[in-house]
Design a protein around this nucleic acid. Sequence first.
DNA 1: GTCCGGACCA
DNA 2: TGGTCCGGAC
Length: 354
Amino acid sequence: MKPFADRVVAWQRQHGRHDLPWQRNRDPYRIWLSEIMLQQTQVATVVGYFERFVARFPDLAALAGASEDDVLALWSGLGYYSRARNLHTAACRIAERYGGHFPDTAEAIGALPGVGRSTAAAVAALAFGRRCAILDGNVKRVLARHAGINGWPGDRRIEDALWRHAESLLPEQAIASYTQGMMDLGALLCTRTRPDCMACPVRRDCNAHATGRTHTLPTPRPKKNLPERHVRMLLLLDRGELLLEKRPAKGIWGGLWSLPEASEDTDCADHVRERYGLVAHSLRELPPLSHGFTHFRLHIRPTLLALAPCTKSLPGHVWLAPADALDAALPAPVRKLVAELARERPLFPRSPVL
DNA sequence: GTCCGGACCA
DNA sequence: TGGTCCGGAC
């Protein structure tokens, strides 16, 4: 089997992108501009902005001579406007410090504002044929899958491993085609969802493909801590029957039968008297449980209460023996609580719903 | 609505 | 080390 890089280069030449507006020559200014625009932004969005930008600022001197406002105006709608400010600052610096000649090493390019390690390497490789590795989001995905690298790429150790791997794969020749090929591979075939493995030149030794892990690599970022909410859920028992209330159609658990809720800091018995006009006393607290939603995490403190036997009908509520309540549409954590209660108190006689 | 993403900054 | 910047894809 040919080396990884050879296959990427051959594929790029036959199937990769060659007609993007910054590929028409090896102008480092245009390549740099495109790489900055392509940070956090997809090619399809960038193309139009790029064309307008180079029409107005065709070279470094034009950009360095512009006002920041004019640069930002052409950036308007692309987002991440610090990119435009850094771009302008960098153009001025190149004019001053390099006499308007674009620096031609990754190190010097990377010293420009707004240019990190990967962008510097991309410009150095594409514009000057320098042998340096890139590692943008696309390449991280390709390498994590091909090498089967587990772990979130934002993790320092994982990212270090990816950089080492990227450098170990670099060919001696055809650096520009290889670099473009890695970008094209990630953008065209090795996409986040639905990768086109059958068309991939490095499928044969791809770890993720072999082990069926293309959809789990790269490891997604850890869930960020969701907001926490706390609530007390009341298990109100009257002669073996539990009070359930129907939730509003909208919002969490819309239309399901759930338990009465109280805020954590109120006294349960007081809350029941005020809200339902019922006399109750707390028996004990049940083990707390947590439930994850997409946008918050709910911590539930269930409390068991006994009612004085003066039950009355409440609109939107129902009294059910725990075993019968399990037949109703219950939210998952409520079902769990009710199931525990049904196991614990199976002997109460059933009685009709009031 | 959620997830994603380079560079920079606190 | 985690937050911030923004818009697009899904």
